[in-house]
Design a protein around this nucleic acid. Structure first.
Lengths: 111, 111
DNA sequence: CACTAATATTAGCTAAAGCTAATATTAGTG
DNA sequence: CACTAATATTAGCTTTAGCTAATATTAGTG
């Protein structure tokens, strides 16, 4: 499943934004999302599962709590996909920035 | 409508990939997408409209042809959204790269 | 102005995504 | 081991996105 298919949902995006600020328990996520979207715990849990299954998030148990964290790999895919458009807003990279960009791309293909 | 909602469709993504390589007529796009997805001209035209309406593409008439081009603004939104995750795969930017990144952000907020 | 080529639009169908309500699971606690 | 807290799962409903088929539009051409 393509990364963008997962990110095409506002609840999932919001969850990832939350996780971007650090790890959070399922309950924490539920509180925030519930307040902002007015959906049930069940719905949030289902979205967390989708994020897990798609490799956007990882879970770790802490007692009865589940602690979620961002798994950056799939988000880098998005970043990579954007490469083909960067020329539109970075018309002329200077030598240095080009070096940085090139280094980035190499790194990606290696791992 | 959020940029990701638009990008959450494989046909639309493919069209944008095509336009990333340069301008194309509606007919050109139809040929390629039809070959790869097996959908009708109508469906492709509908997706082109969605891309137009959402600001991802622009059109210009050339006789009876419509020439489509990428409109990068909305894609930059995606790039901006990713900023909050970049720390995950760029754990330590050196001073120079930081400069580049900072410059980029400033530019965005200005225009 | 009749005809064709290129593209867009509309109405209606269908599949699937995301939700709720109910229930199950899992781990801690007296 | 009964009970509670935290989270996950399942079945079933509803909405809507994206499709097809048919038709409309728009511009060039003899």
């Amino acid at each position: 499943m393509h990364a963008f298919d997962i990110l095409g949902d506002p609840v999932r995006r919001r969850i990832l934004e939350l996780l971007a600020t650090g790890e959070h328990s399922s309950g924490d996520v539920v509180v925030v999302v519930q307040r902002e979207f007015g959906i049930t715990q069940s719905a949030v849990s289902q979205q967390l599962r989708i994020l897990r299954d798609a490799g956007f998030a990882s879970v770790r148990a802490d007692g009865t709590r589940r602690i979620y964290a961002v798994e950056p790999g799939r988000l880098r895919e998005v970043d990579d996909w954007l490469d083909r458009f960067r020329a539109f807003w970075l018309p002329r990279l200077d030598a240095l920035a080009t070096e940085v960009a090139r280094g980035k791309r190499k790194r990606r293909h290696r791992e």
